[in-house]
């Protein structure tokens, strides 16, 4: 226990938990430290295992059996069909490189012309408006989640490969700071639960490793009774520590997704997925 904490303090210091200063942003080093930390914490796991969220962790072995049974007849099948239908009927393939196949590993990405991070939800809506159609309003669930599920499923097996060019470093740091800063009345950071205490139990829940977050999304949650995007999940995680949730596609959650997705470099996409 003691050793862990010393190690953590070191991690916390070097990854800039205290103050992420843009001047010495070093995404590559962050990535290496982050993945090494999990390698040490869960020595039995390969990078591929993290695609299964908390079900890959030793403490969730029993829940995994139940999950595998569910996954034999996944509850998101209907949504996936709906998403594909919408994709085809609206000619969405025409807006994306390679018709949208095998490109999700690069999302979210830094758009050098617009000087902003772009998410797949934004690109889908832009594609719709370009051809005179109405953008999808609800960015967290329902139709948008179904379309994103279809889009990301076309990249299954691709390893996450988000790029952080120099110009994107400020937004990267913004997302990183969001991940490591304590917030809310209950005073947790994302890292409190998904780094420091990953693999342990909060009540009956096994906390997933931050490594692998985003790769299975959108996920069908039994609790939601439907699909949700990763920004929907962020909102839930903020609320449970009595912190203010942000809107899906807000600057905060987009930067957070950018940071998390970059930390997932090398983890294969396995989407959509199912969670309890």
């Amino acid at each position: 226990m003691k050793r862990l904490f010393i190690g953590l303090t070191a991690l916390v210091m070097t990854t800039g938990l205290v103050l992420g200063s843009v001047a010495n942003a070093d995404p590559k080093r962050d990535l290496e430290e982050y993945q090494n930390y999990f390698k040490k914490r869960f020595p039995g796991l390969s990078l591929d295992d993290y695609a299964d969220g908390h079900y890959s962790l030793p403490a969730a072995a029993a829940a995994r059996t139940e999950w595998e049974e569910h996954m034999a007849f996944p509850p998101y099948e209907i949504d996936l069909v709906k998403g594909k239908k919408f994709w085809d009927e609206n000619g969405l393939a025409s807006c994306f490189k390679n018709g949208g196949k095998n490109i999700a590993q690069g999302y979210p990405y830094w758009d050098a012309k617009r000087k902003e991070i772009r998410t797949i939800e934004e690109d889908i809506n832009e594609c719709l408006t370009k051809s005179g159609k109405k953008p999808i309003k609800d960015l967290k669930k329902g139709l948008m989640a179904a379309v994103v599920a279809h889009f990301r499923s076309m990249s299954n097996g691709q390893r996450m490969a988000v790029q952080v060019p120099k110009e994107a470093e400020a937004e990267y740091e913004y997302g990183k700071h969001f991940f490591w800063a304590k917030r809310g009345q209950l005073n947790f950071s994302c890292a409190s639960c998904h780094v420091l205490k990953s693999g342990q139990h909060a009540g009956g829940n096994v906390l997933s490793a931050g490594l692998g977050h985003t790769t299975g999304f959108p996920v069908y949650r039994l609790k939601w009774g439907g699909l949700g995007t990763v920004h929907r999940r962020y909102g839930g995680c903020n609320k449970q520590v009595r912190a203010k949730p942000f809107k899906a596609q807000s600057r905060e959650y987009t930067a957070l997704e950018f940071y998390e997705a970059y930390m997932n470099t090398g983890v294969p996409i396995k989407a959509p997925s199912m969670r309890e």
Binding site: F5, L8, T9, V12, L17, Q185, L186, N187, F188, S192, C193, L196, K197
Partner: peptide, 15 residues
Amino acid sequence: ANRITVMPPFGRHKI
């Protein structure tokens, strides 16, 4: 006592 504890500050945050 521990800056990176995950235990909520029940009094300080008026929980």
